[in-house]
Design a protein around this nucleic acid. Structure first.
Lengths: 241, 241
DNA sequence: TCCACACTTAAGCGCAAGTTGAACTATCAA
DNA sequence: TTGATAGTTCAACTTGCGCTTAAGTGTGGA
């Protein structure tokens, strides 16, 4: 009887519907597994995702199509392969925040927020850039040293900063030409603070791994700081880890 | 054949499973509607939630039980009623972040982030405290005026601040005695900046509504600044809205 | 004491949503 | 050209999960 077909009721339900359709899209077990895998930041083919979620190619294709139409993923064709990745860092962020609700985080008392270097919260990749305590600390130092400067929801690179990055082998001008966002502020769930994302964040992470200052942990989003990395980052950035 | 039963594969899937179960819990249409309603911050009875989601009492009971065991909601009994509310601000925050993925945000070009006072992004309640552009601006002013001071992931209240709040009718000492967090930093999705949550944030919102500086919009999380509120907040806080 | 109300529990039904098998397109490599 | 691989589409099937009916507990008011 009391169907809430008031004007307000309808509007609320419209919002709730959109909200619900996204959440259930993410929540379906197979899709959740795929998204979780893609959180590493790498692009995977449909078959790879099908295998890792342990379903048939047909199922995978159907699920991936849904994620694409919902704009949660993007695809690029390469020959007969299709490479899927998360649509943007916002998606990665939402996935992270959902997982933070998992009750596995055994009773985190108010200020027992001590994060050890072995903790996934300490140093991890978020989609394609560096997050966690280290990601935030690095971003902080870059800002303090005026290599990057805050600009609304984005960062920008100072002239001096561009030179500093060039010394590291990162061509800021080239990155700016890409159509994806250049240097966005990405929120870190565990730290509740900004870190650097966008093409600059991504190429910085790549560079740090290439130089062996950081090392990815296989099949995980965890990243560790090598001893060389520790030393060099202190020398270059006064960043003690 | 290639069931990924490697040690790593299993660990990844364990995480993905937890992740998936939370997301699908949120995503089910009826539960999504209930959660969306609870985002207003108020507590509702099982029947109220059943009506607003347009389902039978039995169904509602079942859904609510699931949300309780997942620690997404909490309940208190009062006589023969049970009052449900979101378990904490983190839950509210996650719900908000999910909804931010909705593609309804019609093409937000890089810096067209112009928010009008009629926009839900401008001024709204997040769970039980004030969020949106106004929430962030208010928090900023409170910090600039040293009423609150940053302390890691929390805020603290200065001695002068405690006096200022007492003049408003907020007893800081009493709030600190509560077992819930006193003054947390809560991230605002649309603004990507902090605002004040915790018991202090909640009682500040209540007080502002009580004094008729703000007014809740029925059946919505939107909140509007009254003209009296505009005037008083400028006088008291140099906050122009 | 009695009845109304708020909410819960259990059993069976039914449907939406995912899976499967088969057929189809497109790319690549002999 | 042929055959192998990557991915998609479609229709038939299977099933998990929410809904309904029905019965039960606990609280409050007359």
């Amino acid at each position: 009887m009391p169907r809430n077909n008031t004007h307000n009721g309808l509007r609320i339900n419209k919002n709730a519907n959109q909200f619900s359709s996204i959440a259930s899209l993410i929540g379906e077990p197979v899709r959740a597994t795929m998204l979780w895998k893609l959180l590493e930041g790498k692009a995977y083919t449909a078959t790879e995702l099908a295998v890792s979620a342990d379903v048939s190619a047909q199922s995978a294709s159907m699920h991936l199509a849904k994620l694409i139409t919902a704009k949660l993923l993007t695809v690029v064709r390469q020959g007969r392969h299709k490479y899927y990745r998360l649509a943007n860092a916002d998606v990665a962020y939402v996935l992270e925040s959902i997982s933070s609700l998992a009750p596995n985080d055994k009773l985190v008392t108010e200020e027992s927020s001590h994060v050890s270097p072995n903790d996934i919260k300490y140093c991890r990749s978020c989609y394609d850039h560096l997050a966690g305590r280290v990601g935030v600390a690095l971003t902080d130092r870059l800002e303090k040293m005026r290599i990057i400067v805050s600009a609304g929801q984005n960062f920008d690179v100072s002239p001096a900063g561009a030179k500093w990055l060039a010394d590291l082998g990162i061509a800021v001008d080239d990155l700016k030409k890409q159509k994806r966002a250049f240097a966005r502020k990405c929120l870190d769930w565990s730290e509740r603070r900004y870190h650097l994302s966008g093409s600059l964040g991504a190429s910085l992470l790549n560079k740090l791994i290439e130089m062996k200052w950081l090392r990815r942990i296989k099949n995980s989003r965890k990243v560790v700081v090598t001893s060389a990395g520790q030393e060099r980052m202190y020398k270059l950035l006064r960043l003690s880890l």
